[in-house]
Amino acid sequence: MNDHKDRSNSKQPQSCHPQEQHVKDNKKSSSRFWKELAKGIVISNPVFILTLGLCPVLAITNSITNALGMSAGVIFVLLCSNIMISSIRKAIPLMVRIPVFIVIIATFVTIFSLLFEAYFPPLHKSLGIYLPLIVVNCIILGRAEVFASKNSVVLSAADALGIGFGFTIALIMISFLRETLGTGSVEIFGRQLFKLPGLSVHPLTFFISPPGAFLIIGILLALFRWIGVIRSE
């Protein structure tokens, strides 16, 4: 048990978020909840600031519908696994914590995938392999290791929702730009939102293909960093 304490203590200063240390003060818990929630959306946005889990981001942002499906999956898995891991965090033996995290995450990913297949089959098909690959998405394992295994259930849920919404916003921004430039029209779940007159006849199909994803993500990353630099000055 001593070993457990020592190792987790020695780790905390290395964590990239100093504010994530365990706070036992109950009075602060409500404001902490909102702080953890807001943190994931801008100041530690998983895609633009932490740059985690970029593989599915590059692959499925070719349409807004796909981006929304993927985001729903990530929010569901992140929320369930964070709550689950946080509620049993004191019983998890340090030695097998990573296998335990992975089993819990894989279970929720499979549940989500099964439900998705039953109730949203077209979307399940178009997400394809990227849905089961949420298991190895480092955003989720990262939150389990850095946050949920050290904080209370309520704060872990807030963290999951914040990071999840941050991920969703990033995906919507990328896929909106790619779909607009690449096809000249935007569709959500088969319903057309708008169609640009010139662009839909001669779309810049480059943006719908993988290199376009790199370009758009690069530009947005630079934009987020630039805003960060301006704010810190």
Binding site: V100, I111, A118
Partner: peptide, 27 residues
């Protein structure tokens, strides 16, 4: 640690079987 991991795995397998038996007829 071994027992803990085994319990986690068993719980998740049971959970997955339940969800699968629920969704597979729909699929």
């Amino acid at each position: 640690p071994v027992v803990f991991l085994a319990v986690i795995v068993i719980v998740s397998v049971v959970l997955l079987m339940a969800v699968n038996s629920m969704t597979s007829p729909i699929v």
